[in-house]
């Protein structure tokens, strides 16, 4: 299967990549600004927000899946959007799971480097927005690493996507849900072969990210 490939495998890999890239990039776009803003700001209740952010980093995927399922099911408040059992909803669930991790990791890193940046920027009379962009620029090496983590989480997650996507053939079936299905039906060889393909994809993304990181140094 791995060497010859087939149409179904290609379709599952494509759906997996679509979901993993979209959700990890969206999580990055939401999580990084939140992390930078929280790290660079001083406000009442900041410590509570940081604790909350770090707590959300441990969100259980199955719980997120169930909550998203209830919200978007036919009788739920967003049921009219008809997103249930779609790749779009799988992406939404993944973003909900991953962006707190991205925000938490960004906040932790930026807090450790922000002091001289903030002092320098303030001393030069540079405004808050530009200061945040400068901080972002100083964090780009770590942001690539955070993205890798987000992508790894997105591509390997099974609980939430199984619940909101339903593992529907030719529609929402991704590699992890296929592996789980193969395991349930006793097709271990297929399950392990898919697992190896998943690892190879992760390796490919890591290699690209490493090249990007080298350029940011």
């Amino acid at each position: 299967m791995m060497i010859s490939g087939n149409a179904l495998l290609r379709e599952i890999v494509a759906t997996t990549l679509q979901m993993a890239f979209s959700s990890s990039l969206l999580a990055l776009l939401i999580g990084v600004p939140i992390g930078v803003l929280v790290a660079n700001s001083n406000f009442h209740g900041k410590k509570i927000i940081v604790v909350l952010m770090r707590t959300l980093m441990g969100l259980p995927p199955v719980v997120v899946g169930i909550v998203i399922f209830v919200l978007f099911s036919g009788t739920g408040p967003f049921g009219s959007l008809r997103l249930i059992y779609s790749v779009d909803l799988m992406i939404i669930a993944q973003v909900c799971l991953i962006f707190p991790i991205v925000a938490g990791m960004t906040e932790t890193f930026v807090s450790s480097i922000s002091s001289p940046i903030l002092e320098t920027a303030k001393g030069l009379g540079i405004g808050k927005l530009k200061t945040n962009f400068l901080t972002l620029n100083e964090s780009k090496y770590q942001i690539v690493a955070i993205y890798l983590f987000a992508f790894a989480r997105a591509i390997s997650e099974v609980g939430a996507v199984q619940i909101v996507g339903g593992n529907i053939l030719h529609k929402t079936r991704v590699m992890t849900t296929t592996i789980a299905l193969n395991y349930n039906t006793g097709q271990f060889t297929y399950a392990i072969a898919l697992g190896i393909i998943l690892l190879l994809i992760a390796l490919g993304v890591n290699l690209i990210a490493s090249l990007l990181q080298r350029r940011t140094k």
């Binding site: 940046i117 002092e119 303030k122 001393g123 030069l124 400068l134 620029n137 940011t216």
Partner: peptide, 20 residues
């Protein structure tokens, strides 16, 4: 204008550091 004790060079060219 303030120059802190530990000077900081941003990760960009020296030229751009001054221009910012």
């Amino acid at each position: 204008g303030f120059m802190p004790q530990h000077s900081f060079g941003f990760s960009m060219s020296v030229l751009n550091n001054i221009m910012l």
